[in-house]
Design a protein around this nucleic acid. Sequence first.
DNA 1: TGCGATTAGATCGTGTGCGATAAAATTGAG
DNA 2: CTCAATTTTATCGCACACGATCTAATCGCA
Lengths: 159, 159
Amino acid sequence: MPAGLPDRPVPPEGPTTEALICFNLYAASHAFIRLYSPHLERLGLTYPQLLVLLLLHQKDGQRVGELGAALAMETNTLSPLLKRLADTGLLTRVRSEKDARSVEVRLTTEGQIKAAAAAEVPACIAQEKGMTEDGYRWSLKTLQALRGWIEEAARESER
Amino acid sequence: MPAGLPDRPVPPEGPTTEALICFNLYAASHAFIRLYSPHLERLGLTYPQLLVLLLLHQKDGQRVGELGAALAMETNTLSPLLKRLADTGLLTRVRSEKDARSVEVRLTTEGQIKAAAAAEVPACIAQEKGMTEDGYRWSLKTLQALRGWIEEAARESER
DNA sequence: TGCGATTAGATCGTGTGCGATAAAATTGAG
DNA sequence: CTCAATTTTATCGCACACGATCTAATCGCA
């Protein structure tokens, strides 16, 4: 399990972008989402919308804050996203009776169907592209360690 | 060096987002860029703009296509980005004399100063956050393998 | 019990990132 | 030499992602 900050400078003329962990994450993230795009197009969803449906498929009726925490997104990004999904009839947003500051998000019937189809997408990509268990586990482990490190670094900045 | 598709499905109710390599890349990428944001704000740059300046700092006078290849960006993203940087006086865009389809991108004097400052940002983050050589190398290795796999998967889709 | 502090979600403006499309220039087969 | 195919860059519209800011509701200390 690696530890430490990964964006390490190299030559005196400054780092090449390829040597930056941040850039490699950035490029890998966009490229991976592009692998999803045939499925996203088929479902009429964007990647962040697919993520929301996956979360609600797992556990319907979550609050906006819970979804935001799970996706590491602030509400300035999430609220408009949920509004668009509500506008297309896939989910509803209702103020909580227990705490009127909170909004509960639930899938509609159409949303449940779409969420079930969305839940199959990662498996479709797994099947189409071929995968090994080791590659999956190795990458996931490293990314989770990296995310842990980034969170730790962010917490240190707040002191 | 891991191989294989990393987004592997898990339980029958569909994958959790945390189990998806794609989501972990996505979340890590945004979180890492947020670590950069104090420096980005100080420079008056966005992250993609910083990347462009890093590339031109390394080698001025590149064509748009070269920059796009290095950043894994299409010209529909890159052209507006370069236009904005040109509008703020950091670079110029000139049609190549050798091939009028191509545009050469060069830093202005102000751009060179800003690019030199930009080149110091990754080192600043390295110093502020503490880093280990092993953590850096491990993460970079895994991300580069992942990017290689994604590119291979993308090529297969085009056949 | 009052009210300042805090929490939760929302809106606005700007810069990407991508699907779609277009214009201009170059290449090379016929 | 012609012209279809290809290449390069650009524009448009939409969905984020984030900094900034706002409104409404709840909490808990005095």
